[in-house]
Nucleic acid binder design. Sequence first.
DNA 1: TCACGATACGGACCGGCGGTCCACATCGGC
DNA 2: GCCGATGTGGACCGCCGGTCCGTATCGTGA
Lengths: 202, 202
Amino acid sequence: MTGPERADAARNRAAILAAAAELFDRDGVEEVSMNDIARHAGVGKGTIFRRFGDRTALIEAVLLPRAAAMRRLVHHGPPPVGPGGEPLEALHALLDTLFDFVWANRTLIRALEHRVPHSYYAHSSSRYWLDELARRLTVTHPHDDTEYLTHILSTALRADVVDYLVSVRGMALDQVRAGLHRLAFPCVPPPSLADVDRRSVS
Amino acid sequence: MTGPERADAARNRAAILAAAAELFDRDGVEEVSMNDIARHAGVGKGTIFRRFGDRTALIEAVLLPRAAAMRRLVHHGPPPVGPGGEPLEALHALLDTLFDFVWANRTLIRALEHRVPHSYYAHSSSRYWLDELARRLTVTHPHDDTEYLTHILSTALRADVVDYLVSVRGMALDQVRAGLHRLAFPCVPPPSLADVDRRSVS
DNA sequence: TCACGATACGGACCGGCGGTCCACATCGGC
DNA sequence: GCCGATGTGGACCGCCGGTCCGTATCGTGA
């Protein structure tokens, strides 16, 4: 066991991740076999399993850097999504950021949920933003049942729920986004469309 | 093509459905192969495929009579869940009936959703109770966005969402049920626990 | 009762999957 | 340049859902 990883191994890891990301995105996760990825990356199938263990771990490995980027944005980025902004703006910015992340990675997220039931809520890389959401809700909704609200919002943010609204019910993305913000304030009338537009364009 | 079906064929259909229902229930849908079902039913694998077409259709066939029973209850049963009762009671009774159905058949429903994305909302045997829910909401919430409310409630009734709350978060069934009823009336305080108990015991 | 076409049966068989194995190639410190 | 540690790749494995077809069973009309 030398320090980290041999040079050729690192090269192959990168090639596999790139090939997997491209094929998953292009053809849908379920349509891509491990053999496809191996061929496309120019490596043997055994190499993939040696690097990543199994199919589930490979999917996670493709998703991980994207989740980490979002996490960095939330924890160290500029306000309003990063720390230091006005609480209400911070909550809405977080919702938008989560929504964008879920939408952009919906195929990977759905595939993971498919292979590891409840991973959407229970997976460690999900927990942190569920907790962050709860934290911001506690500030903006000090008198409500924030655990309950967190659950409602995180369910509305499920990749398959959003996907259904858009691809089966034909809702526009901004409609779904507006519904999400409205859900956070169930007892006030929904904001005017102009407000919603201003927020989601930023 | 004689009239309906030969006697041995009908016998086998029943045996297959019974075997599938038992194994799905006992071991979980994903753990049961078509060979398992064939062996357990005492028929050849070919017979299953001849009768039902493919695995998805077999799962649907196991679920169908249960959904039909619920449908009968809602359309022809005694009030409050059947027609003729007081609107508010009718809505709550429907929510309870749907909740019980989803919980009792959560493994089958999840397996179907797994094989046919969005089937939970889009499948014909789901449509009718989504429509019924919307109908009753229109009566009890004449001034609200009932389409939106229907979506929120049907999402809260997803088999995987309920399953997560119970099996991962450790919520009691009656808590989840209470949350469902509360969701239908977001702007009034939740009913006292006594009310909830009275309703769900009936 | 029997004969015969229509129908159903069942398990060998197929292609493809995720995952394993191991003879061989490649790396990199000395 | 040597040599043990590390990495490689594709043949191979068991299993899956699904098909095929020679054989068995049904039920009708005579």
